[in-house]
């Protein structure tokens, strides 16, 4: 467990007007990032609001590894200053998130990494990233056969033979 360090404004010189945040990943890596970048995350914004209310700033502990965290920070810094409709807490949720080409390249990673990123994005409440990851996973399994899906998703066939061939499990409802 990393100890909770208190970050004083004066000890960390801010770049421009943006202040810095100290994020601590589950593998105990300390990552300093500008508050401006991470404002896309509702979770971080709420924390920052808390800091301002209590005027106490401390490190934010996150339950995922620095590898994943760096990936999320890369995403956030790419979209620094951009307005994305999904991330606007006041806007109505769009029916369908737009396809962004950069995201597709950015999320061209293996399945496990993708699952980790989507969980991190969910924890940090970055809706645009959750949407893009969900789309990437959906794209991976779209049009595949059951066998291929099992391989892609890394799940095992745990049906009994009767269950597997039963025509449907949804007779009621």
């Amino acid at each position: 467990m990393p100890t909770i360090v208190s970050v004083d404004d004066s000890t960390v010189p801010g770049e421009g007007s943006s202040r810095l945040l100290l994020l601590v990943s589950s593998d105990n890596k300390h990552i300093v990032v500008e508050e401006d970048i991470m404002s896309r995350s509702r979770f971080i914004s709420k924390q920052v609001e808390g800091f301002e209310a209590t005027s106490q700033r401390h490190a934010i502990l996150l339950p995922f590894s620095s590898f994943v965290l760096n990936k999320v920070i890369e995403y956030c810094s790419h979209y620094r200053g951009y307005y994305l409709l999904e991330d606007d807490p006041d806007a109505a949720p769009p029916g369908r998130s737009p396809v962004r080409e950069w995201d597709q390249e950015f999320l061209d990673v293996d399945r496990n990494m993708l699952l980790r990123i989507i969980k991190a994005a969910h924890y940090l409440e970055i809706k645009s990233l959750v949407g893009s990851c969900a789309r990437a996973i959906a794209d991976m399994i779209r049009g595949k056969t059951t066998e291929e899906m099992r391989e892609i998703l890394g799940v095992e066939n745990d049906f009994t033979p009767e269950e597997e061939h039963s025509p449907s499990s949804k007779c009621t409802g």
Binding site: H122, V130, K144, M149, V155, E156, E164
Partner: peptide, 22 residues
Amino acid sequence: ILLGILEMLHARDLLACNATCL
């Protein structure tokens, strides 16, 4: 999240998913 992923799929893919695991 899982619901969000599955909602992006066509019903044909859902049927295949339905047969992958319990």
